[in-house]
């Protein structure tokens, strides 16, 4: 795994995300071996590597979708190993977008807000704001299968 790191702006003492000696095994296969990594607030980090080298595994461990076999994950300085994904306040864009096919773009955008108990009005205004930002305001009533590739990718921002 090679990493390319933008110049760090070491403003804060505590890194936003910190992995300490993280190892991940699937049965006998080892995906990550003792990886340590710090990401500072505002840092833009790119993970580069051939397929199967563990890039997605790192993302899933940070998001909480997979557990690390060994090692610790800290988010904003707090141990997050046992924090469920929804409580981590982390966003993730999936490789293939993972839009909910049975919901319109509008419902897709508003879904996380609805799950967090936002009111109808809040959902509507936030969806409208983001849709305007992304230039997809005219696409809101469509279903994912009716969208072009580029538009699919902008339909899954996370709040």
């Amino acid at each position: 795994m090679s990493t390319v790191t933008a110049p760090a702006k070491a403003e804060a003492e505590i890194p936003d995300i910190e992995l300490v000696e993280v190892t991940k095994r699937y049965g006998n296969a080892t995906a990550l071996t003792s990886l340590s990594l710090e990401i500072e607030p505002g840092e833009f980090l790119v993970l580069l590597g051939p397929s199967g080298c563990g890039k997605s595994t790192i993302l899933k461990i940070i998001a909480g979708l997979e557990d690390a076999t060994e090692g610790d994950v800290y988010i904003r300085g707090r141990l997050a190993n046992y924090v469920p994904p929804k409580a981590r306040d982390v966003a993730m864009v999936f490789q293939n977008y993972a839009l909910y096919p049975h919901m319109t773009v509008e419902t897709n955008l508003g879904f996380p807000l609805r799950m967090r108990g936002a009111s109808k009005a809040e959902q509507a205004s936030e969806v409208a704001r983001v849709a305007g930002l992304l230039g997809i305001a005219d696409q809101l009533k469509k279903y994912p299968e009716q969208l072009s590739g580029g538009r699919s990718s902008v339909s899954r921002p996370r709040f």
Binding site: A63, G64, L65, P85, K86
Partner: peptide
């Protein structure tokens, strides 16, 4: 069904 759909939902707090 693709597992990414469930994972996305998990992140969405479902």
């Amino acid at each position: 069904l693709p597992s990414d759909l469930e994972n996305a939902a998990r992140l969405d707090g479902v």
